[in-house]
Amino acid sequence: MEPLFCDTALALRIERAEAEFMAACAVAAKARGADPRGFTMRVGGGVANFVEAGSPFNKVAGLGFAGVPDAVLDEIEQAFAAVGCPVEVEVSSLGDAALGVRLTERGYRLVSFENVLGRLLSDVPTYPSDVRPSPDDELPTWLDVVVEAFLHADVEGVTAHEQFSRTTLETAERDQVTTAGTVRYLAWREGTPVGGAAFRAADDGIAQFIGAATQPAHRRSGVQTALLTARLADARAAGCELAVVTTRPGSRSQHNVQRAGFQLLYSRAVLIREERQADTTFRS
C-alpha cells in the first residue's frame, strides 16, 4: 500500500468531520433529554460542546485552522464556567502551533495525546463471515457488548486521561451510534456476540470508525480485524474515500488498525483548563 501523506488540507477535512460529529452527538443527547443547559457553539471553524456533566463529548474540537481570537476563547470559557465544566480542547499537530501557545498562556495544561490514523478505500479485503450490521432492535445488545468491553480495556499504550462509569459509557455510546449516517456492527462467535463497532459516513468522503471493542475473553482472536474489514467494505460501498480512526498512542487498537492498513496521519494534544470562579476575567 502506498504511503498516505497528510497535509494541512487533509487534516482540516478530518478535524471538520470530527467537529461535526461532536455536534451530532450533542443533538442525539438533547433528543434523549440530556442537560437542558447543553450547548454547541460554532467557533473558529470548530465546535465547543457541552452535553451533560461527565460526558466525553464535553470538549472543543476542530480549532487551529481558521484563527481563534481571544474574544472567542473568552466566550468558550465563560460558557463552560456557567455550567461548572472544565474546558477540554483538542489541538491537531497540523493546526496553527500558536493556538497551543495561547492556550498554555491562558492556564490550560497538557493532559494527553491521541493519534489519528487513516486508510484509503481504493481496495478493501473480503467481507468477513462472522460480522454483520446490527439493526436498531439490537441496540441494547450492542451496547452491552461494547460497554462491558470498554470497562475492561487493554492496558497497553498511553493511559487514558479520564475514566468513565458504566452509565456514562452506555449513554455516550448510545449518543454517538444513534447519530445520522452511523452503522453498527456485531462480531459473532458460535452464536454469541463478542465484539462491536460502528462507522459514520461524514461529509467530504470521510468514514469515521468509532466504538470498537472486544469482550476480554475473545481478544487476540481476530475480532477487531473482522470488524475493521466489514466497515472498510461498507464505507467504500457508501462512497467514502478515506477511513479515519482515533486511538490512544501505542495501544492495542492502534496496533490492530495499522495491521489493517491504516497509517498514522497526525496527533492531537488534549489540553484542559479547570473551572474558575464566576467572577474570573478569563484573561491570563
Rank of each mutant, 00 (worst) to 15 (best):
P3M: 01
C6T: 11
D7G: 13
L12F: 14
A23R: 12
A23G: 07
A26N: 11
A28S: 07
K30L: 03
K30I: 03
R32V: 00
F39W: 07
V51R: 03
E52M: 04
P56C: 06
A61T: 12
A61C: 10
A66T: 15
L73P: 07
E75S: 06
I76F: 07
F80L: 12
A81C: 10
V83H: 09
G84I: 04
V87Q: 05
E88Y: 09
E90P: 03
G95V: 02
L99I: 08
R106G: 02
Y108G: 10
Y108W: 13
L110W: 08
V116M: 10
G118N: 14
G118I: 15
L120R: 15
D123S: 15
P125E: 10
T126E: 11
Y127G: 05
S129I: 03
S129V: 06
V131T: 08
V131A: 05
R132N: 02
E138W: 06
L139F: 07
V145W: 05
V146W: 01
V147S: 06
F150V: 06
A153D: 13
E156F: 07
E162W: 09
L169N: 10
E170Y: 06
E173F: 12
E173M: 12
E173V: 13
A180I: 14
A187F: 10
E190K: 14
V194T: 05
G196R: 14
A197C: 08
A197V: 06
F199S: 11
R200D: 01
T214M: 06
P216R: 09
P216C: 06
A217H: 07
R219H: 09
A230R: 01
R236E: 11
R236W: 14
E241K: 13
G250N: 03
Q254P: 02
H255P: 04
Q258Y: 08
G261K: 15
L265H: 07
T281L: 07
S284K: 03
